[in-house]
Amino acid sequence: MNKPIIKINNITKIYNTGKASVAALKNVNLIMNSGDLNAIVGPSGSGKSTLMHILGCLDQPTSGSYFLDDLEVSALNPNKLAEIRNRKIGFVFQSFNLLPYLNAFKNVELPMIFAGINKYDRKKRVDELLDLVEMSARALHKPTEMSGGEQQRIAVARSLANDPEIILADEPTGNLDSKIGDSIMNLFINLWQTGKTIIMITHDPKVADKCERKIKLLDGEIKK
């Protein structure tokens, strides 16, 4: 289970904002193993969101290389990247990002529609996932009819739709109170125990402490 799934070599990300250019990441090297529970911690502005976006194939580095499951992803076109996000990575956002006009069932189903999975298999999988996050009873409710914790459970179910190897969670408990945050955290720990690789951005030390490995970022560099 200790096969490296993410290999980052010497990655730099520079944002050009008008006249000034800001280096959000400076020569970052990182290896993550399959099945790990990782926390990326650091103060705001330390570059952790940027790193997360690059890891999630939402953004591309200015220089350096990124191998995801032995595939060099920094050279791929947008359509190919979308496919990788669809199949290999599940996203959980701080602000949930569910589509407001779709009910829970359809939100969870969406990544499978993009993957071209047939209707019968989609329904089976959605039912399984809603069961897993204990939200079967809310399948036909829209996000606006749900609490934050419930919405995040739906978002977790959605991230698992295409059975990805990696779950990327950006401050998943940031908008929730601590008790509900704990229950979401337990959900991630359960997932980790089933063999998923989990990468979680957080500035909550309590959350970070529950993780196997902490990666500290400061001013765009990794501190050991």
Binding site: G56, L58, P78, N79, A82, E83, R85, N86, R87, F91, N97, L98, L99, L110, P111, F114, A115, R158, S159, N162
Partner: peptide, 15 residues
Amino acid sequence: REIGVKIAIGAQPDQ
């Protein structure tokens, strides 16, 4: 925003 979410969860820009 909707399009952003869809793309993040794997919709291809072409789609």
